[in-house]
Design a protein around this nucleic acid. Structure first.
Lengths: 214, 214, 214, 214
DNA sequence: AATGAATGAGCCTTCATTCAT
DNA sequence: GATGAATGAAGGCTCATTCAT
């Protein structure tokens, strides 16, 4: 006999619920900080469920990773019928929304961001399939904006500058909460921040024209 | 019976050696990843030493934190007889050297950077005594450069943009190692990166003149 | 949808395949060391198959036991048209071949030999249906050789001496592999060992004539 | 506050008590069948004690092994002022007493006998330090009895025959208990068995004279 | 002032077994 | 007749912490 609540919870397959719970817990506590027990508890499953479905905690992480949203973001950007500078704006905005959306507590980006500070064996896969393509994508976009005069090294550093500005709001979130306790990162605020980063970065990129070779 | 070497090592108070060891281990493995045993082993002390001297692992972290170098960095910058833009260059360079210097494995900044991703009770102290003053300092400097027309909000975001670019190289180090395995962050490379960040940021700041209020 | 291969494999009842797999795994890893999963995997069956068909791991062991080959060995020996001493030689040779034959990985004897060291509930059945008749058989044979003068106690000890010599090569196999790494137990070697045991034992039995009553 | 019982139990150092408990449990259940929890329970220690003192279950087994009694047995035999045949009798008797003494439930021999059926990483050490010297010792003794005409191969097989007879009473104990439920292996019975094995074996060895080269 | 020994909570994993279909 | 999914008990081990000296 199940309560309605349980029925509802159990309606999705345990496997799927485990993945959802894992994304939540991993993004909140990091891989090391997360416990299989907590994940199973949230998924309404037995402790052994993780090992049954994914072989190990590592295996669960590997499957919890999902680069679809990152790929979608890139695809949408390529398809946008806009000039490169505008597409950079769009990219930063979409990326920031993805990074900071509180409504999606199991955001892939949060898990990935966690991995940076505390790498696990899964980081190789993350870099290969998630981050490297993203850096390449942004590199291409920056090249379109900055022109061919920009050196490879400088291009890379510009990409880092842009990602650094964006990721700061995720990595430093616990700090920012303490520095500015009242600030809420709602959609409007996120878009404003994205606009700032875009302005700031486009100005930075423009500057390179006048200091070629470097 | 102790060898001379041991006597020499033990001559510094165990307490001091524990702190040094803690800074090393915390900066390398993060708070959660560090183990009391490893710290005591490196300090040549007993497992119980940490709890004896500092009450707990948390207490050890709290005492291991040392904001002197951060304060020194700010003081040196204020005293520099340079224009604000040049002082921003200096600041970024010194900050980056502090963040990435591999020769100083117990860098406070590395510990603090770790804390961002995985807050412990010590984070409050870190933010209050280390990060908040630093943000304020950079805020003042940015204001000197950008002028009074810049809004408070915009000022804050510029500070974030600068710190974000700098911290990226620390937070994303595991990723960067995989993306560019050959790159070594020696002093020359760090200074080049700092120069890029300064150029990029100064251009970003300049741009604000033409978009006041925002 | 099944491939023809699978169909062919599955054509034997799952039950039968489970028994075969169980004999293999039990003889290789012992009862405790064997896992239901491994048995089911080798049988190409579901994890639940063992419990479905045999109720439990214990039940599987009970059914996996098969004393047919032991009975056959005794019957063949009885039917051999030879003198008792020659029949003892035959018996030891056949028993050793059964014990050590590597080509028959699911040998009953190997399972039974395992049981000796680590009794399970199945041991009662093994003793009753397998070992006790065997001891009785060998006891009769020894009596034929040693004559009626030999006491019951002494008879029993002689049976033990013979079985002990034989079983040593199975029980101590891991040790023997380390003591004499190069030695291979092929058919020729096994027969040579059997001949030695027979010689040694017949000499031992003969000696009793001169020391009756003991 | 401790009860007198606890005080008494705790009077020996935990480490020592753990070793005693381990020998008991290992000899009763084998390495795999033994649980760290049970060992700690019997030693009146915490579950973590084993890992603290011995690093792991494996480490505990390695330290629980003690070849002193085996070595003592050999030394006593060498020092005995007897003829080789008599020394073989003595050896078998002492060895059997060691193997079967029920008053010493943590007998090294019982642990070693367990290892044979289910080898662990410790078996290498056991063979190297315990069994190999023992086989060598018995080999030398047998050569003294059988003379130099005996081939190396035959010598080895005789050693195996003698050890096989002795070990049978240990390995097959669960079976023997079921075959002869009334029989008790008290000192008198053990000595009688040892005498039988010695008689049987000496007769077996004598026989070799008449069948040299083999 | 400091330590070696010991603790207990908790973690990941394995395994035989059971459930629902 | 048989299965994939799920369970719960238990196991070895790690770790920060505490105890007795």
């Amino acid at each position: 006999m199940m309560t309605e609540e349980q029925t509802k919870t159990a309606s999705k397959h345990t496997r799927t619920r485990l993945l959802a719970a894992a994304r939540e817990v991993f993004s909140q506590h990091g891989f090391q900080g997360a416990t299989v027990r907590e994940i199973c508890r949230r998924a309404g499953a037995n402790v052994a469920a993780v090992n049954y479905h994914f072989g190990s905690k590592d295996g669960l992480l590997a499957e919890a990773l999902n680069f679809a949203s990152l790929a979608a973001l890139q695809k949408a950007n390529v398809n946008a019928d806009e000039c490169p500078r505008m597409r950079l704006r769009l990219f930063i905005r979409d990326f920031m929304l993805m990074l900071l959306d509180e409504k999606n507590p199991s955001s892939q980006c949060q898990i990935m961001a966690r991995e940076l500070a505390d790498p696990t064996p899964a980081l190789d896969k993350i870099v290969r399939e998630g981050i490297a393509p993203l850096h390449e994508f942004l590199g291409d976009l920056v090249r379109e904006i900055a022109g061919d005069k920009i050196s490879k090294i400088e291009l890379r550093r510009c990409v880092h500058s842009i990602f650094g500005q964006c990721l700061f709001y995720r990595h430093s979130q616990p700090v920012l909460q303490r520095l500015h306790p009242r600030l809420r990162y709602d959609r409007k605020e996120i878009e404003a921040i994205a606009e700032h980063i875009a302005d700031f970065s486009l100005a930075g990129l423009k500057h390179l024209d006048r200091k070629p070779g470097y």
